[in-house]
Amino acid sequence: MTDMAPSGFGAATPVTPLIAGKRLRHVCFTAIAAFILLGPAPGQLFGQSSPWLREWVMFSGVGVGIPKGQFTVNDANGSDQGSYTPLAAAGLDRYPRMSHYRFENRVFASGDMAGFAAPLCASLAPGQHVSFEGWVGTRQGWAEMSIETVCAMQGDTQ
């Protein structure tokens, strides 16, 4: 290849082909372009994910397993002793600034809620119990969740 720089940028100097041979460069360009454009298709269209074919699903898992709603503390006779936000029940001022995938107290089943609300459960007086009314984040949106006795359900993987 004898490509030369056009006038206007300085002297006419040979352009350095990074892959010698026009045909080979065309083949490489086409192959890389196909990888870039179609690489995510197996995972995103057909569910055949591979870590080596990067899928563009940024932030799609953030908030999954995080509850939205209200925790309520009740006495043995059923009287309401106070309501708590999810953050208050988890004993947090805010969720930690870390990768969401490593937050261990996420809720994937009703039984996980006891782990999420462990600080609130630990603070209960004898005879009290905690209920939850609200939703939990899933990849399909908010999933309704209603739990009568949060703390007693620890270990339940319903």
Binding site: F9, A12, T13, V15, L18, P40, E55, W56, V57, M58
Partner: peptide, 29 residues
């Protein structure tokens, strides 16, 4: 003569395609 600031740019075009693919597939998601 001073060398030209001129050269092959096919990698730059692939970056443009990468950006287009990124937007398209994140929209699909």
């Amino acid at each position: 003569v001073i060398p030209a600031e001129h050269g092959m740019l096919w990698g730059q075009r692939l970056i443009a395609l990468q950006l287009a693919a990124l937007y398209f597939w994140t929209a699909v998601d």
